[in-house]
Simulated scan of single mutants.
Amino acid sequence: MIKTLIVFGTRPEAIKMAPLVKELQSDANFEVRVCVTAQHRQMLDQVLEIFDIKPDYDLNIMKHNQSLYSVTADVILKFEEVLKKEKPDIVLVHGDTTTTFASALSAFYFKTKVGHVEAGLRTFNKFSPFPEEMNRKLTAALCDIHFAPTKRAKLNLLKEGINEEDIFVTGNTVIDTLKYTIKKDYKFREPILNEVDYTKRIITLTAHRRENFGKPHENIFEAVLSLANEFDDILFVYPVHLNPNVKDVAERILKNHPRIILINPIDVDDMHNLMAKSYLVMTDSGGLQEEAPSLGKPVVVLRDTTERPEAVLANTVKVAGTDKEKIVEILRKLLSDNEEYSKMAHAVNPYGDGFASKRIKDALLYYFGYKNERPEEFKGSDMYV
């Protein structure tokens, strides 16, 4: 059996690793252990409950007002103890969080093989997003096997000197997650969402990134307010991040508007089903840029850069940045021009087909000699290089 230790610490990581945990647990060739760092506590636990994942190890590192320094140090030190006990054949990490980099570094110190799920995303600006861009670049240097979601991500890794034999293009596991969460007659956990008038054009909004703190968030929220005043058939639904840097500004600008609903953060299945009922999505998140197109929803990105250029080329995403006038201009076009909207809504999602976790499993079986033939790669992103 391949002794596999899967580690993650935040809600986005959990959402994307959950289908892989399930896939590997269903195969007798793998002995699976799950370690959570709890870099995010409450939001992580929600995902674990939804997918019925019971971690074998919980490092429980989250502290009030924690810093990148404390998270990094705590993960390295506490994960060392798990490695000593389990002695895994491989550690699987995901994406670009501080948990990702720190646990990969800890595994490297232990001379354990590391596999990187969602490898190769790049903006080529080390401070945007911060600290994620450097987390994923440094993680790549530490890893032995790289699961790139797209052909472009693979090319990024090749340019950094990664051996092509160690890269597998798999699609993104977040598309696999939708198979678990989207339900036709879904009843929301958040009661307010069951009362929403879905005959209106719903716009799901998320905005929480630290590089948007301050004036960028003010610009985003003022653009939302302007659009809510201009179009009386739309309704914004905004699960507001609990960080005071976000929440205080959002409530000051957006509270008490009849066409803007502010709610607390919601579970992943609520979010996926809300997007499924939405007209379009506005976000500064990364994962939503991948998820929403699979549901036929255009995405307006509230960041100046994106590490997911395939979506821009495929026309499932438009990058608006944080300039108020540009955001309003792009949204106004999508709300007023049916042809423009339809082009985005019906574009093919370059990020996956729902079988990324199986491809990763097959790649691991090949890598450890359980299969003789290299597995077939995901081809859906080839035209968007």
Rank of each mutant, 00 (worst) to 15 (best):
I2L: 15
K3M: 13
V7H: 05
F8Y: 15
G9C: 08
T10P: 06
E13R: 12
I15P: 02
A18Q: 07
P19F: 08
L20A: 11
V21E: 06
K22N: 04
Q25D: 10
Q25G: 09
N29I: 06
V32L: 08
A38V: 03
Q42A: 07
L44F: 08
Q46G: 00
V47D: 03
E49F: 12
E49N: 15
I53Y: 12
K54L: 14
P55Y: 10
Y57S: 11
K63Q: 15
K63T: 03
Q66M: 05
S67Y: 00
L68P: 02
T72A: 11
L77Y: 13
E81M: 08
E81N: 12
L83P: 05
K84P: 00
V93Y: 03
T97V: 01
T98Q: 03
A104H: 01
A104P: 02
L105C: 07
F108W: 05
T112A: 04
V114H: 03
T123R: 11
N125I: 07
K126S: 14
S128M: 14
P129H: 12
P131G: 07
R136V: 06
D144N: 15
F147M: 08
F147C: 05
A148S: 12
K151V: 09
A153I: 02
L155V: 12
L158V: 10
E160Y: 02
G171N: 06
T177W: 01
K179Q: 09
Y180F: 13
K187S: 05
F188D: 03
E190L: 09
P191T: 13
E195P: 03
E195K: 14
Y198S: 10
T204Y: 10
L205M: 10
A207E: 03
H208G: 06
R209K: 08
R210E: 06
E211S: 08
K215V: 11
P216W: 06
L227G: 12
A228D: 12
I234S: 12
L242M: 14
N243R: 08
K247S: 14
N256Q: 08
N256F: 04
P265C: 00
D267A: 14
V268F: 15
H272M: 05
L274V: 13
L274E: 10
A276T: 03
S278W: 05
S278E: 05
S278I: 07
Y279H: 14
Y279V: 00
V281R: 02
V281Y: 00
T283H: 06
G286H: 02
L288H: 01
A292K: 04
S294I: 04
S294G: 11
L295D: 04
K297R: 14
T306K: 12
R308T: 11
A311N: 03
A314N: 08
T322S: 13
D323I: 14
D323Y: 13
K324P: 11
E325G: 11
V328R: 07
I330Y: 12
R332V: 01
L335E: 11
S336N: 05
S342N: 09
N349I: 13
F355M: 04
A356K: 06
S357K: 04
K361L: 14
K361Y: 04
L365P: 00
Y366F: 15
G369C: 07
E373R: 09
R374C: 01
G380V: 04
M383I: 11
M383R: 14
